[in-house]
C-alpha cells in the first residue's frame, strides 16, 4: 500500500492505496465520485475524462499515485453549487445527451476544448477535438451543437436559450 494525496474538486483528499490503483478507481471507489465512468480498456472512449492541473486527461490511463499533489476536477466539481456550469447547461438545453453515460467525459472534454481553443468553435474543430470521446446514442449531432453553444456561453457567462 502507498499513501496518496491530491486535491479533488477543491478538497484535499488522501488515500492508502495499492500502487496499481488507477485514478478512475480512486475517484469512484475510494472517494465515491461515480460520475467519472469507465467505458473501455484501451483509453479510447473518453467516459473517464477529468481535468488534472487544468488539462483533460483519461482517468483510466493514469495511476492515482501519479496524481500526487495534483489538482483534479471531476464532473461533480464543475457546477457552482446548484447552478450548472454553462457547458452542463448547454448539454441539457441542446439535448446533447441521451443515456448520460458518456456525458461526464464529453462535458469535461468540451470544457477543455474551450480552454484551449476559445469560445468560438466551428463544427469541424469540435468534431475533430472529440476524437477521444465515443457516444453511441446521439450520433454526436446535438453534442456538437451543445459544445458550440456552451463555448459561447462560457465567454458570456450565460447559455443561449434558443435551441431551435
Amino acid at each position: 500500500m502507498a499513501a496518496v494525496s491530491m486535491t479533488v474538486n477543491g478538497k484535499a483528499v488522501t488515500g492508502d492505496i495499492e500502487p496499481r490503483t488507477l485514478l478512475v478507481q480512486f475517484l469512484r471507489e475510494n472517494l465515491r465520485l461515480t460520475g467519472t465512468h469507465v467505458g473501455c480498456d484501451t483509453s479510447q472512449c473518453g467516459a473517464c475524462v477529468v481535468h488534472m492541473d487544468g488539462r483533460a486527461i483519461k482517468a483510466c490511463t493514469i495511476l492515482a499515485l501519479q496524481c500526487e499533489r495534483a489538482q483534479v476536477t471531476t464532473i461533480e466539481g464543475l457546477a457552482n453549487g446548484a447552478e450548472l456550469h454553462p457547458m452542463q447547461a448547454a448539454f441539457r438545453e441542446h439535448h446533447g445527451l441521451q443515456c448520460g453515460f458518456c456525458t461526464p467525459g464529453m462535458i469535461m472534454t468540451a470544457v477543455d476544448i474551450v480552454n484551449r481553443k476559445g469560445n468560438s468553435l466551428d463544427e469541424h474543430t469540435i468534431r475533430n477535438e472529440l476524437e477521444g470521446n465515443l457516444c453511441r446514442c446521439t450520433g454526436y449531432h446535438n453534442i456538437v451543437k451543445a459544445i458550440a453553444a456552451g463555448a459561447q456561453a462560457m465567454g458570456h457567462g450565460l447559455v443561449a436559450q434558443a435551441a431551435e
Binding site: 483509453s43 473518453g46 488539462r55 486527461i57 472534454t109 477521444g132
Partner: peptide, 9 residues
C-alpha cells in the same frame, strides 16, 4: 497523435 487527452499525457 491520439486525441487531446492522450496528447496531454
Amino acid at each position: 497523435i491520439g486525441d487531446p487527452a492522450v496528447r496531454h499525457r
